[in-house]
Amino acid sequence: MTDSGKELVDAGAAVAHSDAIENPGFQPEHKRVADLDPQRAKGAERGIAALFIASIVFTILAAVAYNIFPIVEGDPQSIRLNNMFVGLGIAFGLLAIGVGAVHWAKALMHGHDLVEERHGTRGTEETRTRAVEIFKEANAESGWTRRKLVRNTMIGAMVATPIPAIALFRDLAPAGSPQEVLNHTMWKAGVRLTRDPNGTPIKASEVTIGSAFHVIPENLLEVEEGFLDEKAKAAVLLMRLNPSDLKEAADRKDWSYDGIVAYSKICTHVGCPVALYEQQTHHLLCPCHQSQFDVTEHCKVIFGPAARPLPQLPIAVDAEGYLIAQSDFLEPVGPSYWERAL
């Protein structure tokens, strides 16, 4: 019985068992209290109307609250009450409309079950033949396949229309080579290390052991265009450790000054500022994804997703005792990008 049943079924069609369960039909209609008792129906009606009236009240309250709690210039605290009461008024005003409408539909509107049959997607043979005919007629009347020159030039014209967009969007890229912009920061030989945000230069003698200074290049504050871009690349964290704690590579011995080291503050993972310096463990922690860098060993990665150590800024001291950069960073700061050489 089942075998012969299977053979009857079209391979692409839904499973249709010949012994399928018979459609039991609807359950007996569920009568709601409002259907049975006119008194309860009246009550539900009043309840719904009350919700809509409440909505009106809340809407008016929102408008009133805006005037009762005005935003006073120079007093941030005034924004708080203003926002809260206006927001609550509008929110409850809208919510009461929604709740009222749903309650109306559920409690009072027509409550019978009904079935909506699903229609087949395939059209009748007649419709399908006619559709093919329409295509053929259109082709004959327009000459789409016959007048190839017209057709091809039109396609060509349409393909050409986005060309201005390429020119427009290309101009959004940084001027010149983007690699150049990413490879270099404002640091160069002789630029003083200054305090963020006021730009006062830092003497080596002012950096006591255990200190952490947030540093910007001295010429940063003169930058007018692209200040934040430049700051985002040039930000440096300056720390002083006991010189005996530093395990410096031979070729980098002269990059620090008496235990003072300067590292890029921009994480090599995705560019968050790494500045959570623990002065006893000498670990730097990035708060975004918990990458950890060991300051004693040229900020090598000791935990987390960062791929490279933080770039070190070679520093020296000038004749007046101020800290200066020996050069720019010797590698691009921040996260990886396609053209990055290192």
């Binding site: 002012e206 006591t208 255990g210 200190s211 952490a212 002065q279 006893q280």
Partner: peptide
């Protein structure tokens, strides 16, 4: 004083 792991922010910083 920079207690424990907090860096020192001396009067010169």
């Amino acid at each position: 004083t920079g207690p424990q792991n907090m860096p020192v922010f001396s009067d010169m910083n």
